[in-house]
Design a protein around this nucleic acid. Structure first.
Lengths: 302, 302
DNA sequence: CGCCCTTATGCTACATCTGAGCAAAAGGCG
DNA sequence: CGCCTTTTGCTCAGATGTAGCATAAGGGCG
């Protein structure tokens, strides 16, 4: 009973806000996440991830947390051997460009931005999923329920953090190009959105899901902000990550009453309105107590 | 640039409530977690974990979620090769005993139960940590801050879910027997608590941390309950997991108003008080909406 | 310059949630 | 029966969250 010889690979979802849009660091075409094998010289998985990102993109990471470990036989291109993929989520600021490029993550997972319009969901995704629901009479009830809850259809609420479940459902129902061949649809039935190498879109979805969940209970947004920022910029960042809008005044109050930030004394003018005060993150709060992060003052009506 | 040959190992923290105490499934002595290598026949990491637990303990798991992946060079006995350990958290009910035994997890991590008394913390741990703080003048301030926040000393609040941070701090400060030799203390200075094979206590701490966090935002406690139970039994279970007490009436209100349970119609008598109604988990809520789990109606005074 | 548009900020009304405690219901038992 | 225990119902005040009104303070333009 000896174990299989496997290779371990690190994958990094490195996120930054670029021109107000959440973006992910990718290399090449089709875009792939920075990655590399675990080497004997690496002290830990996290250290290995840092090393590979730095080598491939010239970028030194600050915040980095483990996401998930994948080793499914049926995913990831089906090459030889069996790679174990350990994925990490890194948060940074755009800074100098380095190698590789920032890619708007809503270009990769367009259905996840529900702020502007829902025509994509209504015109492409919902009909495609309905076809899939109906295509198996035996599993219809179960499938319909699953579709409705994951995509917030049939009057149910859209749950921002179900990113991975939504991607997996699209994969399973054959609506993305990387879905297994047997269930492939003609091109015009596929859901828009740029595909990535291997199963990297799945890893990206895992990262987005984690990030959306985490900003609601830990102050991680600040890892994505410049040292000095206005509350509006912070709100824009949160909204872009969550893919939904929040109530401005209450958001301000929430941030202020938690002592998450302090004024720098400067103001930022030139936006065509009243100049905004500039703030910086009070990094000490991370030590002072268990701070509740950026809760989203939800708007009742979706 | 070729990857290191590694072996992947699955580790399972399988939890159940046994005689009202949270317990973990272990094998042999010193106790170790069920584990086994990833084999070519396994379709996924999760499937491999299920297979190994079933083979080694005769127990088929229901709820199973991935915990964390470790591959630190300096931990885990330092054997040959480099094992990647992928750990999982399983929740089940004691049922038939099977192979292996249930071990009270507070016998393994005794300082985590703050319900009864805090003499262990006050008499053993705090003094030991203080010695460690003082032993390095350069790092004293930093160490003191870290000790105070992780163990809720110096007037700070005890944070139940910092289980792993507390274990790591004890490990680092040489207060547990598995700490690296250079910092070893004489036996009478070590913190009580049964050690486990390899770094399994670390994995256990990771599992406990995850479980404590998760019961506050997802209804996972019910995976540990029998099909029919009283609200008091449910409360006892939550309290045992969290290692702290909750307010009975408010706990009931919380459970009921979320429609997490429904009455079976039966009652449970014989406890020397008013007979309690029996309830069952409404498993449908998992589909109906994003249910907020068992929030802990915290008592203000610690 | 004065008006209007925009964005930023302050504040209030109201609903809901939470923490805390009183008290009654309903068995067991001497 | 009276007293113990445990379960259950209910109230109440303070905290927190949601929603919206109102004012402050810049830029642009006639």
């Amino acid at each position: 009973m000896t174990g299989q010889v496997v290779s371990a690979e690190l994958l990094a979802v490195v996120v930054a806000m670029v021109d107000g849009r959440p973006s992910v660091l990718t290399l090449g075409a089709p875009p792939r996440l920075p990655s590399g094998p675990l080497l004997p010289s690496h002290l830990s998985l996290q250290a290995a991830t840092r090393a590979w990102v730095e080598e491939q993109t010239g970028r030194r990471l600050g915040y980095l947390e483990q996401l998930y470990t994948f080793a499914d036989l049926d995913r990831d291109g089906g090459g030889s051997g069996r790679p174990i993929s350990v994925s990490y989520l890194g948060l940074t600021t755009p800074g100098h460009p380095g190698i590789g490029g920032w890619r708007d993550w809503y270009a990769l997972l367009p259905w996840e931005d529900t702020r502007t319009d829902t025509t994509l969901l209504d015109d492409h995704i919902a009909p495609g999923l309905r076809r899939w629901v109906e295509s198996d009479p035996a599993a219809r009830g179960e499938r319909r329920r699953r579709v409705d809850t994951t995509f917030g259809l049939a009057g149910l609420a859209w749950q921002p953090e179900l990113v991975l479940q939504r991607y997996e459902l699209l994969y399973e129902s054959g609506l993305v190009p990387e879905s297994p061949a047997p269930w492939r649809r003609p091109d015009d039935e596929l859901v828009p959105g740029e595909r990535m190498a291997g199963d990297h879109r799945r890893v990206l979805a895992t990262g987005l899901a984690r990030l959306r969940a985490k900003i609601t209970y830990r102050p991680v947004v600040f890892e994505l902000m410049p040292t000095s920022f206005t509350l509006r910029q912070l709100q824009d960042c949160v909204e872009a990550l969550a893919g939904r809008d929040v109530h401005t005044q209450n958001f301000r109050r929430l941030i202020e009453q938690q002592d998450l930030v302090e004024e720098t004394g400067d103001v930022h003018a030139g936006t065509g309105g009243r100049p905004a005060r500039l703030y910086r993150f009070r990094r000490q709060v991370l030590q002072e107590r268990h701070v509740a992060g950026t809760k989203l003052p939800t708007t009742r009506a979706r």
